[in-house]
Design a protein around this nucleic acid. Structure first.
Lengths: 331, 331
DNA sequence: TTGTACGCGTTATCAG
DNA sequence: CTGATAACGCGTACAA
């Protein structure tokens, strides 16, 4: 099923058929109708490859999610990212494709895919410091926008992020203001910007209040990681009475571990998470947290990408979303 | 950056360069080295469009997720599907792209995308009866495999599913066997196969035990939906003492609503969910459920698709996974 | 308004 | 083993 057959069926030349398909005004109503009928009758769909070859564009943008171990993909973070971008692209005629970059050679495949011209641009959920993909895509001069401050890239890049540090500081300051004394934190991985920044924010607050800043355990943003970190914290700092947890997933684990060890939340220990994911409303007790407007961020990143794809100048000033504390029952 | 430039730089013809790239053995070591060096020096990456046009194949398969309102995409179901398929495809040299079919004209876009030759095949997470995409893809004779029994298609199709009906029956029978008397259910949407089948399984069990089968409320597989359904059930059947909930997401909502209304689980009301998603281990109390091996199912679907893409015959007998009851504390 | 003819970058065929 | 050259399907000057 090619455009020739359509043209033949409609009794016009390939060029005219092509014009109808691409919506050119330079076609008589008569010819247009004939072609449209033929397209309908034959069920013609233009070949993406041929079109893309001729045009040098694919009308497709990639959303690249790097290193999705089970641990990171089960995070609601991803659903919101996908949905936010997909909604933003809905308006344009770009098709979004989601690329999952598995570890190691997975990155290589992704790179070849985007570099091969499959996509016109990319939104990259950038998280890990050691991910060479960021720099490579930049070097390939493929238009791209990052969600989350990209680590390990040397050139200025378009990105959106939230003020993680400020958010963590807000949460911790609330803990301090409401009278808790020995405030620990469960931090995220130290090779991820969200992990780094949220830990810094906690440090800012405890130091500003003249409190010790040593009660730190690390988790990997999973429930299990949160449980493990909580366990560790309870053994090294048995007298803690509050915990700022760098993600809601980990906070769920921490809640479980605290209960297992007989600590009541929030009577004995106050807990604040980070991300404001839906299930936090259904934990026992409902989780206080810091909102993370992932969907909006993804939409904004998509917008910026579409702008440069439309010929605009890249918006190199980072777009930062302000954090917002969401108080429920856990603190 | 085209293959001509590579050929020129290496001092060979396009054909030879092409042979090196596609790994043909019909090349002298000398020519191969020259071409490889040129590729490296110039940073050449073959154009996907051109290759795909010449070959008639894209080495890409789609994972199509239809109608993802916020409600369905936040379900961990999707993460497992993505991961399972992506892992399965890792071994082959197929690239997976995830296509989100938003409502309405979103389906149309997806259809044009796949029909335009962007992908060689598709795995479709099929759920809604009214989704015309299923049939259209089948009609387009694009190789595809469904995850979940496809509704509203007339021809036999490759699919994997779990025995939802049997799983629901198992859970309900357990409720009966452990002495609960007035067993209600929160069912899923009646236009989704999982919703339909799980309700049937509950019916099978309560009828076989001679119990009334009228205590039914419907939810949309979300937490909120579960809360609403539980509320409704408690008002129409205040004497219920057990609930089989057709998904863990809804079960979380039901748990919350039951607690809100002062019912203790499992002392006053027993609850069993469905899906065995990770967070069910962290609810209060931990949720009994039926395992739903989504990852394995996706992997199997991918395998079947790869087989036909490799020239094999389509495996038209449905592949059914056996349900397994996972008992924790809620029943 | 329409048609002709060329180019997009690769692979495959067929002579050498 | 290598090199011309014809597809692949479509868009678009250019000419009519």
């Amino acid at each position: 099923m090619t455009i020739r057959q359509v043209a033949a069926a409609a009794g016009v030349s390939r060029a005219t058929a092509s014009r109808v398909i691409s919506g050119s005004p330079l076609v008589s109503g008569q010819a247009r109708q004939a072609v449209e009928k033929a397209i309908d009758d034959l069920g013609f769909v233009p070949s993406a490859a041929a079109r893309s070859l001729a045009l040098g564009k694919s009308r497709t943008v990639a959303l690249i999610l790097p290193e999705p171990d089970a641990r990171v993909l089960t995070d609601p973070f991803f659903a919101s990212t996908i949905l936010g971008l997909s909604a933003q692209l809905e308006a344009s005629d770009m098709q979004m494709v989601l690329l999952i970059a598995r570890s190691g050679q997975g990155t290589e495949r992704i790179f070849r895919f985007v570099e091969g011209g499959h996509v016109d641009g990319a939104v990259i959920a950038s998280h890990h410091r050691d991910d060479s993909l960021n720099q490579r895509v930049l070097d390939a001069s493929l238009p791209c926008a990052f969600i989350g401050r990209p680590l390990g890239v040397d050139a200025p890049a378009m990105y959106v992020d939230m003020d993680n540090r400020q958010g963590a500081r807000l949460a911790t300051e609330h803990l301090i203001a409401t009278g808790w004394q020995r405030i620990a934190t469960i931090a995220g991985p130290s090779d991820m910007s969200a992990g780094i920044d949220r830990l810094e924010g906690w440090r800012d607050a405890v130091r500003a209040a003249g409190r010790p800043d040593g009660a730190i355990a690390y988790g990997d943003f999973t429930i299990d990681g949160g449980m493990g970190a909580a366990r560790q914290l309870l053994s090294t700092n048995p007298d803690l009475d509050a915990v700022f947890v760098a993600s809601d997933m980990m906070a769920v684990g921490a809640l479980t571990e605290l209960r297992n060890q007989g600590r009541r939340v929030p009577q004995d220990v106050a807990v604040i998470g980070f991300d404001n994911f839906e299930l936090g409303q259904s934990t026992t007790p409902p989780l206080s947290t810091v909102d993370h407007p992932v969907g909006e961020m993804a939409a904004k990143a998509g917008q910026m990408l579409l702008d440069v794809l439309a010929g605009g100048e890249p918006h190199l000033d980072p777009v930062l979303f302000a954090p917002q504390l969401v108080l429920r029952n856990s603190a």
